[in-house]
Design a protein around this nucleic acid. Structure first.
Length: 568
RNA sequence: CGGGAUGUGGCGCAAUUUGGUAGCGCACCUGUUUUGGGAACAGGGGGCUGCAGGUUCAAAUCCUGUCAUCCCGACCA
């Protein structure tokens, strides 16, 4: 049966809703795909549901092809499982918590690692059962501090999450590759542009991790790529260290007066050097998961700022904050504005340096005395560090870690994430199986996510013009959109006939059979709703002709009625 | 959580400065005419102005509190 606009639950809007900012959000609301129920929570209308179902269908087909089996967990979970892994507390304010009538704690699941792990533990106990890969397509709940962009970052959203279970690392590698390949096929079939970037795996304690980003100026993730094909999330970029140089013959370190030069800018101005010649020593406060606060100092080239995300990744699982006045008070040795590395170090403060600070490099840096800096301060001769921390900002033009050329910075929307979790959850939840020698071994896991509802937004974002949406064929709510225009009965009859012909061929049809609606309104709605092919049954019907519109190219042509079905 | 802004029929907005009891466009309903680019005319339905207090003869408007929403930032397995 064609979807009839005369009875479809739909109301299109002529004006942009005031609280929508990004195009996909505006258009999905205007074209009647979704309605806002609360901040970051959306109701799906028939058209929206059709698009979502198309995406899910493709995902299911490719998951099956990759050997994954579908299950379905509750979204409402008891506290227990999350207590074992510590996430009941660790997840913080982002977790939706609630109680039942007996005051037992529950949560709305933000993710399901625990449940999958426990399910496999529940049913399997032999290496012969593995590998196995399970997935679900499910609502997730995260009480985001700030939902944004409509479907782009919601507090309730649909995610496909898959988990692989293997007995060893080689198996995990294979399972990971199978999912990664499936993701490539899924995104290709959906017609969505994507870049696979290396991601930082630190926080989750696993090893390999890659994100699928869809490049977009409204993306929340910044990534880098090189002409030679390197791509990584900024958090994961490893700054290449230059070759160590000889210390021989370098001028001796020299403390000079540099009054009123407590900032890099004023120092550069006063000393006639460049910011890149200076070593900026940033004091950071680390807050451990247990809430303990400690200070560290990191020396980075003076022309760069600290990238908070990179710092968080480098010091994970600690949280990183700027040191406060109170922190400084506890360490009177630190002379603000003139802080520098000390041969014997500061008591209680670890000192790290940027990877670019290597043996033989010479710096201008603080002398730990008000109004003085030390020049020709050479790493490996005059000072050392406790280690390397790569927390400085990455800039366009920086060399790629693999030597494949200068990096370019771009924004992207995360649409998928594949991740070798390893044994973190299996260990925490005691998921073990017997191996062929009858010995218990811990299972190793992979985790693979695709943001289904986010994909609706990403596809809308990438496929629209000023008139409305233009869906890729694979996800369009229908294959063809037929408009009965004009008032003549035969136009409506012809539209009906064509609709049933397409349906008979297995195509899905939206039929605008609304009586007494002017052609302009119908054309406008057709363009707004965005089915890629539109057929107009109007004044041409008298000559057995219809108009065929290609929504994407804008091409319009008149075709004989009997050849209509050949157009698709 | 910090900064900014906004809450008025389904949607977009006005009236708030200067208190006087809510209006316009779209959408919706009825009728007539109209039908290839968001028709015309006539008639009509729908709003405790986010909520709670307060001031006042009188509050959408002033005051206090509170809640919510949006944007920027922080945060975001």
């Amino acid at each position: 049966m064609p979807i009839r606009l005369s009875s479809l639950f739909l109301r299109t809007l002529r004006e942009d809703p005031a609280d929508a900012e990004v195009e996909s959000h505006k258009l999905l609301l205007r074209a009647g795909y979704i309605r806002r129920a609360a901040a970051g929570i959306y109701t799906w209308l028939p058209l929206g549901l059709a698009v979502k179902a198309k995406i899910e269908k493709i995902v299911r087909e490719e998951m099956a092809a990759a050997g994954a089996q579908e299950v379905f967990f509750p979204a409402l979970l008891p506290r227990d499982a999350y207590e074992v892994t510590g996430r009941w507390t660790e997840y913080g304010d982002n977790l939706f918590r609630l109680q039942d009538r007996r005051k037992n704690d529950y949560l709305l699941a933000p993710t399901h690692e625990e449940m999958f792990t426990l399910l496999v533990k529940d049913l399997y106990s032999s290496y012969k059962d593995l590998p196995v890969c399970l997935y679900q397509i499910q609502n997730k709940y995260r009480d985001e501090a700030r939902a944004r962009g409509g479907l782009l970052r919601g507090r309730e959203f649909v995610m496909k999450d898959a988990y692989s279970f293997d007995i060893d690392d080689a198996g995990l590698e294979k399972s990971y590759q199978a999912q990664r390949d499936a993701y490539e096929r899924i995104f290709q079939r959906l017609g969505v542009e994507y870049v696979i970037v290396k991601a930082d795996a630190g926080a989750m304690g696993g090893s390999a991790s890659e994100e699928f980003l869809s490049p977009s100026p409204i993306g929340e993730d910044t990534f880098v790529r090189s002409p030679g094909g390197y791509a990584a999330n900024v958090e994961a970029v490893k700054t290449p260290a230059p070759e160590a140089r000889s210390i021989e013959g370098l001028p001796a370190a020299e403390v000079r007066d540099t009054p009123n030069s407590s900032t890099i800018a004023s120092l550069v101005e006063a000393a006639g050097i460049t910011a890149a010649d200076t070593l900026k020593n940033v004091v950071l406060a680390l807050v451990s998961p247990e809430g303990k606060r400690s200070l560290v100092m990191v020396g980075i080239p003076g022309d760069r700022e600290v990238d908070t995300k990179r710092a968080e990744a480098a010091f994970s699982p600690n949280e990183v904050e700027a040191a406060t006045e109170e922190d400084f008070k506890k360490y009177p040795e630190l002379v603000k504005g003139y802080i520098g590395p000390k041969a014997d170090g500061f008591v209680g403060i670890k000192y790290f340096v940027d990877p670019r600070v290597i043996t033989g490099t010479s710096w201008v840096t603080g002398a730990n005395v008000e109004g003085k800096h030390v020049f020709n301060f050479v790493y490996g001769r005059d000072f050392e560090a406790d280690g390397i921390k790569d927390i400085a900002e990455v800039r366009a033009g920086d060399p790629s870690p693999d030597g494949s050329g200068p990096l370019e910075l771009a924004r992207g929307i995360e649409i998928g994430h594949v991740f070798q979790l390893g044994r973190k959850y299996a260990e925490a939840l005691d998921l073990k199986v017997l191996d062929e020698n009858g010995k218990l071994i811990t299972v190793t896991m992979g985790s693979y996510g695709i943001g289904i509802t986010r994909l609706v937004a990403v596809l809308a974002e990438a496929n629209h013009d000023e008139k409305g949406l233009i869906w890729p064929e694979a996800v369009s709510p229908a294959d063809v959109y037929i408009v009965a225009a004009g008032k003549e009965e035969e136009n409506y009859a012809a539209a009906e006939r064509i609709a049933y012909e397409f349906e008979a061929e297995g195509k899905t049809v939206i039929l605008d059979d609304r009586p007494k609606v002017s052609p302009g309104v119908k054309f406008g709605d057709a363009e707004l709703i965005g089915v890629p092919y539109v057929i107009i049954c109007g004044r041409g019907i008298a000559n057995n002709e219809v108009d065929f519109w290609d929504r994407r190219s804008g091409e319009r042509r008149t075709v004989p009625l009997n050849l209509v079905s050949l157009q698709l």
